[in-house]
């Protein structure tokens, strides 16, 4: 049986299309009260522009599943961390050519070498600490010469 939680969890992140909101770790809670559903999510970055779209996608997914009243709430506490991306989520990122984030070690300045998601080589170099979206940095593999995105540890 598909629960309403599953319906919400299946909503994709619009910027990291291979991940759904549950794998990304931003889905906190889904509660059902009669014909009303309350969904609680948390933003990745303070200014993540995808939040409005994610909210709208969750609403339409639940409406499609027959839910009349949907309330999507945003909470900040506890703050999201890349450690909240599930192991399946990290594997999907790597399979899509995006290097998954290293575990947080207390400081964002400790960035161990990032492995190339295509050839697996640790011989990579950072091109820019800010990438195509707020959550990514830009890297290049010096072994296979492919440029790639990496999700920044946060």
């Amino acid at each position: 049986m598909v629960t309403l939680f599953d319906v919400v969890a299946a909503v994709k992140d619009p910027e990291l299309r291979v991940l759904n909101v549950a794998e990304l770790g931003i889905l906190r809670d889904v509660t059902v009260d009669g014909d009303a559903v309350t969904v609680t999510i948390t933003p990745t970055y303070s200014g993540c522009p995808a939040m409005d779209l994610i909210r709208a996608d969750i609403e339409s997914a639940l409406h499609d599943a027959g839910v009349a009243r949907v309330d999507v709430r945003t909470v900040l506490d506890p703050p999201w961390s890349t450690d909240m991306i599930s192991p399946e989520g990290k594997a999907k990122l790597a399979a899509a050519g995006i290097a998954p984030p290293a575990p947080m070690s207390g400081s964002v300045f400790v960035q161990l070498s990032v492995r190339c998601p295509r050839c697996g080589s640790p011989a990579t170099e950072q091109l820019s600490r800010f990438g195509s979206t707020a959550c990514k940095s830009l890297w290049r593999c010096t072994a296979c010469l492919e440029p790639f995105d990496a999700v920044k540890a946060l």
Binding site: P43, Y45, S46, V75, L76, D77, P78, P79, W80, S81, S107, V108, F109, R129, F130, K152, L154
Partner: peptide, 15 residues
């Protein structure tokens, strides 16, 4: 709560 989120982003700005 805002600060707990923003401090991690701030570290990137300082760097």
């Amino acid at each position: 709560a805002v600060a707990a989120k923003a401090r991690k982003e701030s570290a990137y700005h300082v760097d």
